[in-house]
Design a protein around this nucleic acid. Structure first.
Lengths: 146, 146
DNA sequence: TTATAAATGTGTAATGATTACAAATTTGTA
DNA sequence: TACAAATTTGTAATCATTACACATTTATAA
């Protein structure tokens, strides 16, 4: 379900992708930070402990991990690319107030359309936008407070 | 269902958005070109007949039309923003071979998740990727021909 | 019609994410 | 240990988008 760091390393080995220090640290970061981080977040956080890290390296590694099928690009806004460990299908909800992206379960098998009967589908994506419970309650608090 | 140019003009009037020449031409272009064009496509096509047109103007107008709710931003790839006349909910299929984006019907009411019961959902998006029938048959032709 | 303020459009410069590329470093192998 | 290949790094280039100031058009009223 949620692949462990060890399982992901194994998958990369099988694909003959060398497990360099930087690659492992980026992978580890994504396993530990399941908040769909941007390149900027990944880079600035990792740079604290890998002082020589280059942002280009982060871009390169993410590209390799995506091609290897262990990381998925999350495209919700065109001005920010986010990355997620590749897991079973799920939807994303982006809160338009705080920007947080939440995962939610959804049955992708139900996502079918007769219009696509002659199409070869290789990737299904679902994302919603709106306001998350936390922000909704903050808004209510504010109203009450006024 | 598919709003006409006249209906869209009416909607803009109701929202007190001045129907300038450039705005009407961009709107007309989107009604007539239901291929989810990029800013570049809209600009370069319209510039042929509106020689003074500025790309900044196209950006400005698209922003206004989106805010007015008559145009929707289609985010599938983070490197290209596409625009579509706002219509009833439908999914998008992007062919990874030719780049064409197809509309398909899908029941958005079925798109629910218990995980989101306390969330306020204002926008639902579905997009698939894969190979379209045309490209699939081209590939088959090529294989046969070899 | 004419004056004038507000709205709209235009062109250039700035921004910022991403990519290209070449040099430096590290790794694997003989 | 030596060398070739892979990986990382830093800088420069690219490209979509935005900021901004100026030009043009439109709406309104005298």
């Amino acid at each position: 379900m949620k692949p462990s760091f060890e399982e992901l390393k194994e998958k990369l080995k099988q694909r003959n992708i060398h497990l360099s220090y930087q690659r492992l640290r980026v992978l580890e970061y994504l396993v530990q930070n399941r908040c769909h981080p941007t390149v900027e977040q990944i880079f600035s956080d990792l740079q604290k402990s890998i002082s020589t890290l280059s942002k280009t390296t982060v871009y390169n590694i993410l590209k390799i991990l995506v091609e290897a099928g262990v990381v998925k690009v999350i495209t919700i806004e065109n001005y920010e690319t986010r990355y997620d460990i590749e897991v079973e299908d799920h939807g994303h909800f982006k809160c338009e107030s705080c920007g947080t992206i939440y995962d939610f379960n959804i049955n992708f098998d139900l996502l079918n359309s007769a219009d696509l009967k002659n199409f070869k589908i290789s990737d299904k994506n679902v994302y919603f936008k709106g306001i998350c419970p936390r922000c909704l309650s903050n808004i209510n608090e504010t109203v009450k407070g006024d």
